[in-house]
Structure formats: structure tokens, C-alpha cells
Amino acid sequence: MVRRGEAALTSVFADTYERRQLVDFTVPLFVDESAVIYKRPELEPDIFGFVKPFTGLIWLLIFASSAAASLIFFILYLVPFSASEGTGLGDASSRRVRPQTSGWSKVITSLEKSVGWSLYCLLGQSVLWFPTRMTLRIALGVWLLITFIIGTVYRSTVKAMLILPLVRLPFDSIDQLVESKIDLVVFQGTALYKEISNSANGTKIGRLKPQLRSLADEQTLLDQVSSGKIAYGGIKIPLLHLMRYQRSLTGKCQSYMMTERLFKSHPIGLAITKGSPLKKKVDKIIRRLRESGILEQMLKFELKEISQCLSPISATISSDDIRQLSLKDFYGVFALYGAGLILATWVFVFEILLKMLKEEKR
């Protein structure tokens, strides 16, 4: 419109070399950045939350340690020691040493007790028998201390996660945005769209080209961003105004802004018809507003309502926002418990069948 002479000046635009060939720009109102906004994640039930306190590697090390402890107990039980140490494992109720067994019966008994001690300590369950050998007592005592520390850390971490849930962002950097495969919508005529389109494929910004989409329908932009269908990129301050508008509709922050910026140091000014005498007058006004701090104060006043939306999401969770536990939070634990019952039932049936077969042979 400015180029055709239908308007004397426009609203704010990024001052680029291509645009300067068509129109004049005032002195910059401010220097802005290119950013990306996306749907703000919500606190939702996590079926596998009970395994989240530890990473996969830690769980693997715990199970490996339990297996190693069982093997050590098994070896210590089978290896003969002096008579003064006792013969193995006794009954906790009678405190009498069980009769010695031989052959496979002794091996099975030793394996059962060794695995039992390892798992019972790990799960915090009581044991109906105790070791009588000093070497076994020392080994079991060390394992008991280790499992106590593991259990304490696990319980405290789960409790902390329930009190202040950890919200994972879909992406918070350019690399994560690329990995997410989420479509990035940008106005086609903007400097940001051209920069991404013209970047080499191997560069950090160029990797976004497969996800880059031009904005087809401005009317549905807000709904698409709020529903998480697209990520929207552009100049930071217009994006902040969009976030402010979203918040005014629902009273809550609907979007978050990616921490890493796509581009920095974009001079933002008003576009004026080339050679227009208005440029000097508008430049003078902008300089006075900028030097007096009025321009900056106006911007802060406009955007103060969304300061909470720009804070880290975990920092914005108050005691009123903490989600109450629902039945879905226990689905994972119930599923694990059900699987254990099914396995125990199969073992029980197998033992009955095995006993029946032995009786038939007799």
C-alpha cells in the first residue's frame, strides 16, 4: 500500500535490504529477535510415572546389582566354611539351623534363599529367615544398607515429583524443534521466511526447511497454535501480543516461547513512501520517545500481563495449580501388579501339575 501511494506509512516491519529497495524506513523503534511459540504443555497423568525417578541406566544397574547380590549370596551359601560359622541359613522364628541337604535340593534351596533375600531387601519386605554364617551376615548387611539408600532416594524423588511436577517441553531449542518434526508456520513475505528458505541444508536454520510452511489462513492461526498443530515463528514483540491476546480469552497462558532465538538484532521500524517528507518528522518523534524512555515504558506496560507466560513453566506452578492425582496415575502400578499376579498364578498352576505328574509316576 505504501509503495502504491495508498498509505503514507505502515505499522512496524523488520528493516531488511530487500524492503529498502521499495520503501524507506524510519529510525528503528527497537531492535527485536525472531522467536517461535507453541502450545503450552499441561500437567497430565503419567501412566509410567512410577519409573520416572530413575533413568533407564539406573534401573538397569539396580537390577544388575540385585542379580550380582543373589549370585554372591548363592556362592557364600554353597562354599563350605568352618563349623564355627554355621552351615547357612536359619529360621527366624526358631533360630535353629536347618538340616543339611545334598544334591540338587541343596542348590535349589540355596538359590531360593539367595534370590529371596536380594529381592525382599530391594522391595522393602520382611524376611522369615536369617543367615547364621558371619560372612553371609556381612554380605547381607551391606546389601540391606544399599537397598535402604536406593529405596529412600526413590520414595523422596517420587514425592518431590508429585509435589512439583516436571513439565517437559516439546522443544526449547532449534535442534529440538527439528527433531520434533512439528510444522513451523511463518508469513511467506517476512525476512524470517526468506532466511530459512535461503539457508543451506546443512546449517542449523537450514534444517528447518522441511518443516517450514507458509501461513495459509490467518483466521485459524490462533486455533492451530493453541491446539498444538503448528509452531508459529516471527518477530518477538508481535508474538508476545499474540500470547497476550490468547491469555485475555481464557485467563491462562496458552503458549510458551522457545528460549533459543532463530535470529537476533532485527531493526524494527515504520515503512514510509520513498522520498516522503514525513520521514524526518517521524524520525524526530521516534528519537524523542526512545531517548526519554517512553517507548520502552509503553512496551513494558503493554506486555506486563504476560510476564508469567515467559517464565519457566516449572516456576509458574503454584500450590493451586498442582494437579490432583487421578486413577490414571495408578494404571502403570496396577498393570505391573496384575502382571505379577498372572505370573504367580502360572507358577502356581505349573507347580500343581508338576506335583501331579510326580505322584502318577509313583
Score class of each variant (00 low, 15 high):
residue 220 T to E: 14
residue 276 S to T: 00
residue 275 G to T: 08
residue 339 A to N: 08
residue 299 L to D: 03
residue 187 F to M: 15
residue 107 V to D: 08
residue 271 A to S: 10
residue 169 L to Q: 00
residue 21 Q to F: 10
residue 293 G to N: 09
residue 244 R to P: 00
residue 188 Q to M: 10
residue 281 K to D: 15
residue 272 I to D: 10
residue 239 L to K: 01
residue 244 R to F: 01
residue 173 S to R: 07
residue 27 V to K: 06
residue 127 V to P: 00
residue 312 P to Q: 02
residue 359 E to F: 14
residue 70 S to H: 04
residue 346 W to P: 11
residue 205 I to F: 04
residue 247 R to T: 06
residue 280 K to T: 10
residue 298 M to L: 12
residue 93 S to R: 13
residue 101 T to Q: 12
residue 213 R to N: 05
residue 285 I to G: 08
residue 218 E to W: 07
residue 184 L to H: 02
residue 138 I to Y: 15
residue 153 V to F: 12
residue 34 S to A: 13
residue 135 T to V: 09
residue 108 I to M: 11
residue 122 L to M: 08
residue 162 L to K: 13
residue 323 R to Q: 07
residue 123 L to P: 02
residue 40 R to N: 06
residue 292 S to M: 08
residue 316 T to P: 06
residue 85 E to W: 04
residue 291 E to F: 13
residue 320 D to E: 15
residue 73 F to G: 07
residue 44 E to A: 12
residue 120 Y to K: 15
residue 216 A to S: 14
residue 243 M to G: 09
residue 308 Q to P: 05
residue 345 T to W: 14
residue 295 L to R: 13
residue 30 F to L: 07
residue 239 L to H: 02
residue 310 L to P: 03
residue 150 I to K: 03
residue 248 S to N: 06
residue 196 I to G: 08
residue 276 S to P: 03
residue 268 I to S: 09
residue 187 F to I: 14
residue 90 G to R: 00
residue 34 S to C: 07
residue 227 S to W: 01
residue 190 T to G: 07
residue 358 K to Q: 12
residue 347 V to N: 02
residue 310 L to V: 03
residue 210 P to R: 07
residue 244 R to V: 03
residue 205 I to R: 02
residue 231 A to E: 00
residue 221 L to W: 03
residue 186 V to I: 10
residue 163 I to T: 15
residue 115 V to L: 10
